[in-house]
Amino acid sequence: MKICFVLSAIATEGCGTSVRMITEAHNRNHDVYACGVGGFTFHSDKPIDIEVVHIAKNSKERSAQEMLEYMQQKETEIINSTDLDVLFLRNNPTEEEDNRQWAEFSGIGFGQLIQDSGVLVLNDAHTLANAFIDKLYFESLPEYIKPKSIITRDIDKLMEFYEEMGQQMVLKPLEGSGGQNVFMIDKHEKNLNQIIETISQEGYIIAQQFLPDVKHGDVRVLLLNGKIMEKDGVKGILRRVPSEGEFRSNMSVGATAATTELTQAMQDIVDIVSPKIIKDGLFFVGLDIIDDKLIEINLLSPGGLDYFEEVGLPDFSSNVIEAIERKIHYRDKYKGELSNKTLASMD
C-alpha cells in the first residue's frame, strides 16, 4: 500500500497521533509518504505532483520519535499523486497562524482533486470541504445530545444568551482548537466586553451552555468507521482532567490524561452520531463528551493516541492502519464500484 499523510508542515510536526500512524504504517511494511500542505503542484494537463518525504518499506523499524527525526532530516522528492493508494488528510486548518492563511484550505482543496482522480482520501475530502468548520458540523447533530448554544458576532445576542443561561456560559471562537481563547463567563467576570472583542477578532463566536461537570474534565472518544476503537478488550476512550484552577480539558493548556470507563450515556451519543458520520464518509473522528452531552466533534485532525500510551492503554495506531488496509482490499475487489464516501467509512 502506498499511503501519504498530509501534515501542516513536516518541520514543525510534533510526535503525536500522525507520527504514530506513520510509524505503524511503515513498520507494517507499507510505502509511506509525508507532505506539508505547501507541497502540492497542480498541472492542467497531468496529475497533481506532491513534494514528499518517502519512508520506503523494508527500511529499518523505528519508534515514533525516531521516525519524526528521520522525516525532518530526510530530503524530499516528487511523486505523482495518482500513484498513491491513500491520501490521509491530517493537517489541522484551525491551527494555522495568520501568516499561513493560504494553508487553511489547501489540504482539503487538493484532497478533493486527488480524490476525484481515484485515490482513496480520508476523511472524505468533499465532506470536509462542506464541514470545513467542524464546530458548524457539530451544530447539525441532534439538539438533545448537545449543550445549548448560539453562534453570532452580535454582542446583544450574546448577552441575551448569557442571561438565558443564568449568567454562566462558555465563549470560544468558531474556528479554533487546542483551547485557545476559550473562556468561562459568570457574573464575576469583569472583562466580558474585552473578551468578546478578543474572540471576535477571529471571526464568529460560539456561546455555549456551561456544564458544571466540566470540573471533572471531558472524555475523548475515538471512532473508526463510526465505532469506538477497541483493542484487546480496551476501548479507545480517555479522560482529560483539567489542571487546578482551569476548566479547559485541552492537553495543550495543561490537562492530564487518565483512564475511564465507557458509560451508557457515552454509548448513546456514539449511537446517535455514528449513522451520520458513516453516511458522510468520515473514517477517523474524535468526540469530546461531558457527562451526557457532546461538546465537540473533531473531524479535521483528531488526535490523542500519544496520550493513550501515557496511561497504559494499547497503541491504537495499529487499528487505524489495519482498517485502511481493509479498505484497499475492498477497493481492489469491488474494482471501482464503491464511492470514496462509502469506502472511507466501510469497516
Rank of each mutant, 00 (worst) to 15 (best):
I277C: 07
D186C: 11
K187I: 14
D268A: 14
N99V: 09
H216K: 11
E325D: 15
R240V: 04
L113S: 10
E202S: 12
Q201N: 03
K231M: 15
D218M: 10
L313C: 08
D213V: 04
H26I: 09
K187P: 01
D232H: 08
T127C: 11
I196S: 01
G16H: 10
K60Q: 13
E69V: 09
D124W: 06
F42P: 02
A258C: 08
D213F: 01
L87V: 10
D306P: 01
P93K: 10
E325F: 02
K146L: 13
V285R: 13
N27A: 05
T152H: 07
R153G: 04
S59C: 12
K146N: 06
S18D: 13
T12D: 11
N130R: 10
Q65G: 06
R153M: 13
I289N: 00
V182S: 05
V19G: 03
H126M: 05
E77C: 11
I277H: 08
A323Y: 04
N99P: 00
A56R: 11
R240A: 03
L192V: 14
Q115G: 15
L222D: 03
I133F: 11
E202A: 13
L313E: 04
Q201G: 08
E310C: 08
E104C: 14
G111L: 05
D134W: 02
I272F: 00
A344R: 05
E337Y: 08
S345R: 10
D98I: 14
Q194S: 11
V273G: 04
S274Y: 07
G233R: 08
S252T: 14
F138H: 09
I199S: 05
E139C: 13
Q115P: 03
L7I: 05
E197T: 07
Q72R: 11
T94M: 12
K60T: 12
D154L: 07
